[in-house]
Amino acid sequence: MIRIRPAAVVMFLAMCALSVSAENFKPSERVADQKPKIDLEAQVPLEFGGWVIDRSIIPIAPSPDVQASLDELYSATLARTYRNAAGQRVMLSIAYGSDQSSEATAVHRPEFCYSAQGFRVNSLGESALTLQGYNLPIQRLIASQGQRLEPITYWITIDEEATLPGIGRKLEQLRYGLQGKIADGMLFRVSTVGLDEAAAFKVQEEFVRSLYSVFDTNFRNRYFGTAKKT
């Protein structure tokens, strides 16, 4: 007897509903047009909480052909490396898209980007990062290539909601689609090299908390989501 997991049923129903919604409702109202413009370069501070820009390391970039397709998909991207007084480095990559209404237009998962660059990617599963009394849903990965080991933490936002690829994102797409709206959103990724797994994720958490604490409150929810209280 074949056992069907409840989560699989919910996913299937959500996908069906999203398909029907896309066909019948055809969302046309862009959320991005009703809110202040996202400007990654201006809104993400260059220095904060002891972290400063380090131009000696650049986050992994897509190949030229992949980058060309990403330029069509994303409204803006940002790639920076920060360093603290202890010499620890965190690579930050953000991709913003004004249309997150479907899988075709949604931001790409880091798993695919790193794999396309020849990395072996292992998922450590979903987790949560506490930010001033709130839980931010995150996904953790380990990307490896030769001697390079790169622990990764990421999440995505749909308008002002933090979620992860999969059913969470699909339900958010459905919610906005049923309102006739096209939500914007972004992929927010941090990673490190030169540290073991435990130390890397600890530094990443400290980096994200520090950035969150100083981020412009007019835009903070659009980068970090309106995380749920603990």
Rank of each mutant, 00 (worst) to 15 (best):
L164T: 03
G166D: 03
K37E: 13
Q179M: 15
E103H: 15
V214C: 02
V9G: 04
C113V: 10
V121P: 06
R209Y: 04
H108M: 05
P151S: 00
S115P: 03
I4F: 07
F48M: 07
R80M: 05
L18N: 07
R148L: 11
A199R: 13
L18V: 04
F201K: 03
I53D: 07
Y212C: 06
A143G: 08
T105C: 11
D159F: 07
A79F: 06
K229M: 06
A183Q: 10
L149Q: 06
I38P: 08
L149D: 02
V9F: 07
E205Q: 12
L18K: 09
Q173V: 05
C113H: 09
G225M: 14
V208F: 12
G50N: 04
A143Y: 10
K170D: 09
G50F: 11
R209P: 00
R89D: 00
A7L: 00
V208T: 10
F188I: 05
G194N: 11
T77Y: 12
T157L: 09
E205I: 00
A162Q: 09
A128N: 14
S101G: 05
E197I: 07
A128E: 14
E161H: 12
D196H: 05
Q145F: 03
N84C: 03
L178Y: 11
E197Y: 05
L40N: 08
D65S: 11
P59D: 02
F25I: 02
R109L: 11
Q43D: 02
V190Y: 05
A17G: 12
S19Q: 03
V90K: 09
I156V: 11
E206A: 06
S127L: 08
S98L: 01
R220T: 10
V20E: 01
P36I: 01
L13R: 02
A227H: 09
R175E: 03
Y96D: 09
Q34R: 14
E197F: 07
S127Y: 14
A22C: 01
K170Q: 08
N84S: 05
A104K: 03
S21I: 02
L73D: 06
M15I: 11
N221S: 13
V20H: 01
I156D: 03
E103Y: 15
V52R: 14
V214G: 06
A162Y: 07
Y154K: 05
T153K: 05
L129C: 05
I53T: 12
A68D: 15
T105M: 13
N122C: 10
A199K: 14
S191Q: 07
L149S: 03
Y114M: 06
K202S: 07
I38L: 12
A32H: 01
V31S: 08
W155K: 06
E150R: 12
G125M: 00
D159E: 02
G87C: 00
V44C: 02
Q43F: 01
R120N: 14
L70A: 07
